[in-house]
Nucleic acid binder design. Structure first.
Length: 428
DNA sequence: CTTCCACGGGAACACTGGGGTG
DNA sequence: CACCCCAGTGTTCCCGTGGAAG
């Protein structure tokens, strides 16, 4: 084989001592046999669910906790154990896991549950009650206990709680099977607007997962690092830094693991055989910018347009007609504050420039709120008294960064290619 | 007390992509 | 095949509401 630059690069990478023994251990989807600092939660959960192995119906459970506090890990871990023991002893017990963040409508949830029992349900087309009864008949076809785990259950309630109502009272209509529901949510108050009957039925038991502190995060990382890396790859400082950074964000173990994995990958790519603290810092900004890029890239064109309007105003504050005092003098870092009306004006003219449909202001407020929740933009509602109510909007992400991602959208191309000055001319 | 601007809930609509029926 | 039914999504229309400045 002839030696190409790529081939030599590949050879180099293959011959160098590998940094990872097993990099999957560092992914948050990996579930270790032992979950540090979650003994209490595991115990509680097992104690509630264990009755399934005696053929009884476990209480329904709601599990709360911020992202990366181990809710999913603990639940699936316990679920797997219960199912395994059940199989060993010939007890018919099934654990079904569903992520409602992905399967986020009533129809799709019921369809996916029914498919678990071998039913053929079309992706769309049927009335929902038909899917429901298909699921129920499949479920009830024999004696068994079925534990249904609904991860990110809060995503479901926004689109009507009919399914939850039906599921929570399904036991009274079953002859052979028994169902128990485990809901997982990172929103503590998601039950607030639920039908009271559903709320009390779903939350027969409640478990709250506290965030990890930096020390606990270190333990988690150490446990995984032992399997993931060869000896001497890490020093203790790297682990504490990852933990400290993740602890600052509400004790997010997923974040800590990502930091560790990405920084190691950065070090590996640099041809080193160990990880330094600055890799961790670099990993942190890489994670953040990847996140933003991914979010912006997948935004619908209209939202991109709104975002670009905000960026334009941010760059050209003279277009913002401020009444009275504005952030005079050194308003830190050139971040400009604008109102919904101003954004809408800009948005409308820019849509006209590239012949894009103009949506109503009502809709645009909604899109701005979405951008806010995605963390790309800051928007708070304020009351300016005599001057009415509005959102105060400011950019929350480095503009050049967004710009690069935005330019991947063909629809916006003509606009992005215009000189900033030219756009401002047309707006003014 | 009035006024002002936009927030944000809710209903209604259009449209898409699929099913079942005659 | 034509036709109507269904869930889901994105949108518009209508409107009651907040709350400090005037």
């Amino acid at each position: 084989m002839r030696k190409t630059p790529i081939a030599t690069a590949i050879n180099l990478l293959l011959e160098s001592k590998p940094m990872f023994n097993n990099r999957d251990v560092l992914r948050s989807t990996y579930i270790p046999d032992y979950l540090p600092h979650r003994d209490r939660e595991v115990d509680i959960l097992i104690n509630i669910l264990i009755v399934a192995l005696r053929g009884d119906t476990p209480s329904n459970i709601l599990i709360y906790g911020k992202t990366g506090t181990g809710k999913t890990a603990v639940t699936t871990h316990v679920g797997n154990e219960i199912e395994r023991v059940g199989k060993e002893r010939g007890i018919p017990c099934h654990v079904l896991y569903t992520n409602c963040g992905i399967i986020d409508t009533q129809y799709r949830l019921l369809a996916s549950l029914a498919r678990n029992f071998g039913k053929k349900i079309p992706m769309t087309g049927w009335p929902t009650d038909q899917v429901y009864s298909e699921f129920k008949s499949a479920l009830d076809s024999r004696e068994r206990v079925v534990i249904i785990i609904l991860d990110e259950i809060d995503k479901l309630t926004k689109k009507g709680d009919d399914v939850l109502y039906n599921l929570s009272r399904i036991n009274s209509t079953l002859k052979h099977a028994k169902v128990s529901l485990v809901g997982i949510s990172n929103d503590l108050k998601f039950t607030e607007f639920l039908d009271p009957r559903v709320r009390s039925s779903l939350g027969e038991e409640e478990i709250v997962f506290p965030p990890y502190n930096a020390e606990q995060l270190s333990d988690i990382l150490r446990q995984r690092a032992e399997v993931a890396f060869s000896k001497g790859t890490l020093n203790e400082n790297v682990i504490s830094l990852c933990s400290a950074l993740a602890a600052r964000e509400h004790g997010d173990a997923r974040k800590a693991l990502d930091l560790l994995r990405i920084s190691a990958e950065l070090a590996e790519r640099a041809g080193l055989d160990h990880v330094e603290e600055f890799h961790v810092r670099r990993a942190q900004s890489a994670i953040e910018s990847d996140r933003v890029a991914e979010v912006v890239r997948t935004l619908p064109t209209q939202s991109k347009m709104v975002l670009y309007s905000i960026m334009t105003l941010n760059r050209a504050p003279e277009l913002i007609r401020r009444t009275g005092k504005s952030g005079n003098g050194g308003n830190g870092g050139g971040r400009n504050i604008m109102s919904t009306g101003e954004v809408y004006q800009t948005y409308r003219s820019m849509c006209n420039m590239i012949d894009l449909d103009v949506l109503t202001q009502r809709r645009i407020t909604e899109l701005i709120t979405e951008l806010d929740m995605l963390g790309i933009v800051n928007a708070i509602v304020i009351n300016r008294g005599r001057y009415g109510m509005t959102k105060e909007i400011s950019l929350d992400t480095p503009p050049d960064h967004i710009f690069r991602t935005l330019s991947g959208d063909a629809r916006l191309q003509p606009l992005l290619e215009m000189r900033p000055g030219a756009i401002q001319m047309q707006l003014g």
